[in-house]
């Protein structure tokens, strides 16, 4: 069985809250004896000025126990991004990529790529929220991740691209009909928000490169 826990080397603290000002960071790295695992970052922010405002952002790779209540095959490896915001009303957005055709032995490479995406996303988050970047090393060892794991990022981006191209990326909105994203325009509409840039930009680039390749091959 693949050992995901070796990825602990890239995080100072795992499975414990890291509190920096109004922000709580949590790196979940877990694997059970049946091979189910989870690697994710969970960030939450309590706004002290507006007492009831709360924001949570979660992102990561996992393979869960089968769950009959789930609307998807939770035991298939998946990459999930969750954004939740509570003000007067609450809003949530979930993006769920299912990696159906991944060989078991390849999963460790995807997990390494996920560590890179988590690191880039954390840096972006620190910058956007004006958190002292010196504190980033309390959550992730950025230099080690970038120097040792950067090459694996592309594998995960490739997998997102395959999900987008070959699968059905379905948008579910309460009270509206589901629809399938098949155009770049809709991809931009749903994925282009600030914290998702480390995922969205390389994916968009991959789509554009492939579009160019396809159109030039059609001309020939």
């Amino acid at each position: 069985m693949i050992n995901f826990t070796i990825l602990e080397n890239y995080f100072p603290v795992i499975n414990k809250d890291i509190i920096i000002g109004n922000y709580t960071f949590y790196i979940k790295l877990y694997q059970d004896k049946n091979g189910y695992f989870s690697l994710e970052v969970d960030i939450s922010k309590k706004d002290t000025k507006e007492k009831h405002r709360f924001v949570q952002f979660l992102l990561g790779l996992g393979k869960d126990e089968p769950n009959e209540l789930s609307c998807h095959d939770s035991e298939v490896p998946h990459f999930k991004i969750d954004y939740y915001q509570r003000e007067e009303e609450a809003f949530s957005a979930t993006i769920y990529f299912t990696f159906r055709n991944i060989a078991e032995e390849e999963l460790i490479d995807y997990a390494k790529g996920t560590v890179v995406i988590i690191t880039k996303m954390l840096r972006k988050y620190f910058e956007n929220e004006d958190i002292d970047i010196a504190n980033l090393s309390e959550v992730v060892y950025e230099n080690s991740v970038i120097s040792e794991l950067l090459d694996y990022e592309e594998k995960v981006i490739d997998a997102f691209y395959i999900c987008w191209k070959e699968g059905d990326l379905i948008v579910r909105q309460k009270g509206k009909d589901n629809f399938v994203i098949k155009t770049k325009h809709n991809l931009i509409k749903y994925l282009n928000f600030d914290y998702l840039k480390p995922i969205y930009l390389p994916l968009k680039e991959k789509i554009e490169i492939n579009e160019k390749i396809n159109s030039s091959s059609q001309i020939m």
Partner: peptide
């Protein structure tokens, strides 16, 4: 109908 859908995006406005 919902089960075993591949990848998805779900957007919800939740009522408090």
């Amino acid at each position: 109908k919902l089960a075993h859908n591949e990848s998805y995006i779900e957007i919800q406005n939740l009522v408090r």
